[in-house]
Design a protein around this nucleic acid. Structure first.
Length: 149
DNA sequence: GCCAACGTTGGC
DNA sequence: GCCAACGTTGGC
């Protein structure tokens, strides 16, 4: 099993919305490196949900991959912000796995706290200027995060 | 294939 | 709202 971390803007799609929806297609990611990670997610992988653009940015909960990636339907949707005219049904550019809500942390692990966890100091999440919205976590990074709550 | 200009992300 | 840092685009 693999571990991942994805960012979502708190006011766009917070963990509470995932909790309500129970399952969601993780669409709209338009970065090649992130895309490559999304397509390598396997059923059962755990995904830590991070809220960016929040009053207190940080990790708020966990989802599980319930379905591996399919072509992101938004890329074909003319007029959508996520439409990509380079994409065809035969050769889609963007892919979306399905996330299933697992649980929400009682307390968010704030970015400020994350910076104090020494096991995380090499994670892209904390690297200055890094904007990647999907990234792998090592098992030890995941374990440390789970032990926080 | 380089690189400047532009757009976006995300913390503060 | 600002701005640093980065990814992408497009002219050459």
């Amino acid at each position: 099993m693999n571990y991942w971390l994805v960012k979502t803007e708190e006011d766009i799609y917070p963990i509470d919305q995932l909790k309500k929806d129970l399952e969601t297609l993780w669409d709209g990611v338009r970065n090649f490196q992130a895309r490559n990670y999304l397509t390598s997610m396997n059923k059962g992988d755990q995904v830590f949900i991070y809220h960016s653009n929040a009053e207190i940015p940080g990790i708020t909960g966990i989802a599980v991959i319930s379905k591996t990636a399919i072509p992101d339907p938004l890329q074909f949707l003319t007029g959508s912000d996520y439409h990509d005219k380079r994409s065809t049904k035969e050769k889609p550019l963007w892919f979306s796995p399905t996330f299933k809500f697992k649980f929400k942390f009682k307390n968010k692990i704030a970015l400020e706290e994350l910076r104090n966890i020494k096991e995380l100091k090499d994670s892209p999440l904390l690297r200055k200027g890094n904007r990647l919205s999907v990234m792998p976590l090592t098992e030890s990074e995941a374990k440390v995060l789970l032990s926080q709550k």
